[in-house]
Amino acid sequence: MILTDVLGSRVLNSEGDLLGRVADARFVLDQPPGQLLAGARLQGLIVSPHSAGSFMGYERNDVTRPWPIAQILKWWHRGSFLVLWEDIEIMGPETVRLREGFTAYHPGLQGAGPGQAPQR
């Protein structure tokens, strides 16, 4: 399936209550390498209770500047959480349903992300 189909989908728990919308999908590069780079496995989805668009990820990193834009966007995405693939029962363009007793994780990323600015 195509990833952006899932982005923005409504996220429901097993009882059908709305938890939020899919803001992003997290991958881990830990699969057997194809040729050049490790395969990318879907670790889980980032769910935001307030808006569908992942606006720049301030809720997931420790960037606090430029003030006050960073603070506003961080607040806008407050309450975001990560659910792992194991807890997803159904994934589709309209809804994503989670399994009973799913676990919500911190959405935070360690450091600034995978790529540091390349020194050219």
């Binding site: 938890l19 992003d24 990318a40 980032i46 992942s54 990820g57 990323l109 992300g113």
Partner: peptide, 27 residues
Amino acid sequence: RPRNTPTSLKSPPSVGGPVLDAQLHLL
């Protein structure tokens, strides 16, 4: 508005490779 947002969040399990968020790092 969603009212069932989980209140307590656990630290995510550690993983054996770099992490990429699609919107943030790929799209």
